[in-house]
Amino acid sequence: MTSSSKYRSRMIANTVIDLSISYQRENLLARGLGLEHLRELLVRLARPLLRQAASLAYGGRWKESEDNFTFDLLRLISAEQEDNSLGGPDTNLSIGRLVSHCPWPEYLEVTPRIEAQWINCCRIVRVTQQDAGIGAPDQVPDGEAGNGSDRAVFNSALTLSAMRRLAMDGMTIDLPGLASPEFVPPIMARVVLGGKTTGFHGFLPGIFEEALVALERRRPLYVLGGFGGAAEVLAGALLARGPDRPQALVLDALRAGNPGLDRLIGLATRFALPAGGRASAEALDALFALVDKARGNLPAVLNTGLDEIETREMLTTCDVSRAVQLVRKGLTATLGLGALAE
């Protein structure tokens, strides 16, 4: 057995796994944890996936800050790629990379320099207003993206939702002058942790919308609710008994803490939604329907690859090691993640 096959494989090559992990100090500290623990969790999840050639999706912004894990992941990938180059020029292919889906207007802050710097580690996938199905007359020029106009705010939310949807379906990107377009593979499994329930941008809290599109496509979904935030709210809803709809999944309750959402809901009555677009009420109803369905059979609806007890533990544990263990076990069952020495 060679070093490459002992410690690396192409077991899940071309598979994209989304790590939707965000840091909220209060949530974590109340549970006895800090940024350090979250970073450890991320690396422990990411490295074995990369060594089996999976790519990671992570939706962080492109500004370096302590709590933005984009650069942590890039540095990890870069280090693993350098390590792997010892095995020969072809072995680089077996290390996954970062797929960074970036919606309009967020991608406007990604400079060519940033993109060039990380080009071997990361594919930045820009999701435009056109990708979101917004017709040309309704599109806002890039220069007016930050003017706070109703159209700009509305289009920004639409593009964010479209990005979450398209990332799950895969995207074909035309490359000017080339015959074959580039295909960005779809996200095949998602891990969610933390997340905001107030002060979010878009029609739903990010974690809710990401969970919704994953559940609709029956992709494995690992909701690590033990670390607080929107993931905890979602885990609580999944674990609740009976048919009751938790307040967190009721539109009026969401509106109460989010003036920005109130504005969006108003805008959705004035502007037409593009094909595939869903405003808050419809999306929230769809999410609750799936949550309600999952209550009867969590492992099957979440498609965790774990049994009932393990799935419940995954939804509630605040033990970093255990969370990593359960996600890896689930991915082994659902996607064929292998067991390598490490």
Binding site: M1, T2, S3, K6, Y7, R8, E40, V43, R44, R47, R51, A79, E80, E82, D83, N84, L86, G87, A341, E342
Partner: peptide, 21 residues
């Protein structure tokens, strides 16, 4: 929680009959 790929590669060159965990 794991050596880097570089370290694993070097160790493997020296010790092909070992697996590191």
């Amino acid at each position: 929680r794991g050596l880097s790929g570089l370290e694993l590669d070097i160790l493997d060159e020296f010790f092909p009959r070992l697996a590191f965990h």
